[in-house]
Design a protein around this nucleic acid. Sequence first.
RNA 1: GUGGCUGUAGCUCAAUGGUAGAGCACUGGACUGUGACUCCAGGUGUUGCCGGUUCGAGCCCGGUCAGCCACCCCA
Length: 438
Amino acid sequence: MGEKIPPVKGTRDVLPTDTYLKKDDPWVRTGHLQLIEQAARDIFPLYGYREARTPILERTALFARGIGDATDIVSKEMYTFEDRDGTQVTMRPEGTASLVRAYVEHAVQQQGGETKWWYAGPMFRHERQQRGRYRQFTQIGVEALGSTGPRIDAEQIEMLDRWLRFLAVPFEMHVNTLGDARCRPAYRTALQEYLRANADRLCEDCKKRTETNPIRVLDCKNPRCQEVAAGAPRMESYLCDECKAHFDGLRESLTRLGVAHLVDPKLVRGLDYYTRTTYEAIATSGLGSQSTVAGGGRYDGLVRELGGGDVAGIGFAAGVERLALLVAQAGREKEERPVVFLAPLGAAEEARADVLAKHLREAGIAAEVSFRGSNAANQLKRANALGARFALVVGELELSSGRAKLKELRTGEQHEVDLARLPDEVKRLAQNTPPSAA
RNA sequence: GUGGCUGUAGCUCAAUGGUAGAGCACUGGACUGUGACUCCAGGUGUUGCCGGUUCGAGCCCGGUCAGCCACCCCA
């Protein structure tokens, strides 16, 4: 026997049932992911977003330039390697850069108007894993390109709000503004000067952050740093007129659309490309310290940075595994179970059952046949374990008479049916008695 | 990348340094053709891995790997 080959660290299997999963595994089933994805697939097109699929593998330069060299993601978390022809390639750590590359590559700007895309797929970051953080994880995200005003920001935030509320996830929507290329530098400088003057009261990390990413200091969990942060200059008072108008417009729109939100001046996003609007949906319970369930913002300079025109954009990305943890806790899941379980008692009956199953499936009814050649009791036990709604025992009597008893497992009630018309009979009975909630 | 905690059967867990066990689940039977309740029977382990201490290690020690939690960062 060969040795067992373990999975790569930080990667996980998602399986349809959890009877073989460990109890303290904060993990989820395929059904949880499917519920989340299906909801996105249903809701996003209502807002005009259409699906785009881009490669998982991209040139390293795309992320280095798009996300920012100095960010943690680019500087220490990317899965990067040299392709056989010498090209430096990276397994994507996020989706926005790729979508913008595709937008530029195909000169989508020439079509005019807004471009709204959504995407779903695996992302890779080499981080130490913990609850809600994995090296391969899944994001569902959207990007809206070609519009500068705050109304589209509000529409997108309302869409995220609707999606999360449909999923019954407990969350709060936080919004903030980071200013733009004109007013952010002035604020950054003022903040840095303030932080340097108070460096003796900052933690070691924040002393570094003062130079690399001073806005992050505002978000530090260290109580002493928070005291310093409390007295720091505020972005609000440095916003240029345009940025201030944009933020005011966003909040008005959100209120008009009925989106509950709170302004969070400490909301800072880690990627370099964000300007003006930033927002995050933060879980209020159920997750550990990785409680951001979706985050996004405006990136008005990114398209130009990646070789395109002067095109504004805004998008968000949601962590599907984090959502799934919450959906699992709420007990919500897309279920797939057989409607009819066929239990044949001998070789001739098995042959007939196989064909009966085919007829049921042709009629759109989920059917499973036993392949185990066991007695009726054990096959019924199997039908019950699978959660089937009906069981049909096929024996000599049924073969000769062409009639059988269709047993409803929840109630134990048996209905006499004509095998030649089995799909119709099942449909008729399924209508009369609603499926059990269990 | 740093720190803490934890690794025993598919799962949940026992086992004063002295023969590795139970419950659940699974499979079969009681019931030669009717599940969920009941009863009976069956099997499984390189005690994560490597080394050390010891007459003897699942237990003690060191290392390592993995998982979880937190820092950091982010989805």
